[in-house]
Amino acid sequence: MPKVILTGSIRQHVGGLGVVEVGGDTAGAVVSALEASYPALRGWIVDERGALRRHVKLYFGQGAVSLDTPIGPNDELHIVAAISGG
């Protein structure tokens, strides 16, 4: 199963874990599986339309990817929050 590496500020919603293995063959499916396993994460990474939040990025391989990017079972998907704010 793909590994998901979570940014520190949302680890509180997955019991403090930094790395979680969940199923899914696209980045979006992985995020959905993550929400299913950890319901407190619902609404934090994607909004209720299923759109990635503006200041959240998914990284896989060499760069940022979209939710429909295919992910293999041995891949790592990084969920990263932008450093932004005032």
């Binding site: 500020s9 949302i10 319901p39 407190a40 619902r42 609404g43 934090w44 990474i45 909004d47 209720e48 339309r49 939040r53 200041h55 959240v56 929050a81 932008a82 932004s84 704010g85």
Partner: peptide, 28 residues
């Protein structure tokens, strides 16, 4: 949250731990 959007929380003791409520959320 600046990165992770709006969320509603509740508690019976504001000096203690807060719980996240489900929703509100628009229907698809």
């Amino acid at each position: 949250h600046g990165q992770f959007g709006p969320h509603l929380f509740y508690t019976d003791d504001p000096t203690g731990k807060w719980q996240q409520a489900e929703g509100p959320a628009f229907p698809p």
